Computed example of a mutant assay.
Amino acid sequence: METTRYVVGYDGTTSAQNALKMATAMARAFEAELEIVLVLREDNPYQRVYPPVGDISPVLEAQARVWLEEALAVVEGAAGDAADGAVTARTHLWRSHSVVTGLLEAIDQLGAAMIAISAGSGKGRLSVGSVADALLHSSSVPVALAPRNYRPQVPPDRIYAAVGTRPGAQQVIREAHEVADRTGLPLEVISFLTDDDGARDAAVVESVREHVGKTVRDVTETDTEVNVASGASLKKAVATVDWQPGGVLLIGSSRLAQGRQLFLGTTAARLLRHLPVPMVVVPRPGATETGSAGLLGG
């Protein structure tokens, strides 16, 4: 069976360490290996630096290698807390003209099934930084985002799938069902409703529940929990969900995404700010694709 690999974008920061711990927990649960990538930006020979500082690349490279050694220690420490053994991890010092380009190159050349990164350091649990934002609009594989200050206390023990009533929900449900089926984890499909969507109207809530339930049944015959989380705002709707400490939420890309590529939709972007669990954004399938080729590899 082909090895499943997850790329982890790493830069030595605390938030990157949290993303690495998240990726380690997911790799253990989903039987994957980690490729920890630190991108060093290459100098542009046509760009003048003022004031002149000389060649500092040896200093940067030495520091980068220290951070990568620390990353392996983070993986070893996170895996050491589990009873089911270590996670295989390798480090890569990648050179590219930008961090985003380097990570996209690593995904392609290492054959990764997913990339894990820290979301950022702004307001909210999951605030998208510039690198995360670029990947969320260009990656060809799922992007896993760790909430700010995320500390995985238990391995993944529940899969959530966030869907709406528009076309495209089947792909996310299919992806989530495959993960749940192959790992034995329970699956809960959630649709979020706010007052703007008619959350105070019981008939609207029931209509959404029936629609999502039918979509689930079109994908799988497995008995699956369906939940409509409603509230005055998206933040309050999210707060009504009984999030498990080991939960992982899957959500699809916007309909604006090209085939087998990500494009973060407005609802997903807003949802990011309020989630207490990792979010995995799944690309739209290609025009000829009918199955899943996501977190668990091909």
Rank of each mutant, 00 (worst) to 15 (best):
R151F: 02
R28G: 07
V49F: 10
L135V: 05
A79N: 04
V281R: 00
Y46G: 07
S292G: 00
E42D: 11
V141H: 06
E105Q: 15
A239T: 03
V204C: 02
G129M: 02
G120R: 11
G246K: 07
G9D: 10
E289L: 01
V248I: 13
G122N: 09
S121Y: 04
Q171H: 15
A268D: 05
A64P: 08
P283Q: 00
T290P: 00
W67A: 06
A29F: 01
R284K: 02
A268H: 06
A161G: 09
V154T: 15
I107Q: 13
V154Q: 13
L126Q: 13
A27I: 00
I56R: 11
K214I: 06
G85D: 07
R166W: 08
A16S: 15
S121H: 09
P52R: 10
R90I: 02
N44P: 07
A89N: 06
A79G: 15
R270H: 11
S15E: 15
L249E: 10
A161K: 05
D195G: 15
A176D: 01
Y160C: 06
E178Y: 13
G102Q: 05
E210N: 12
A257E: 12
A64D: 06
V219G: 09
K123L: 14
D108S: 15
S121D: 10
E70F: 04
Y150M: 00
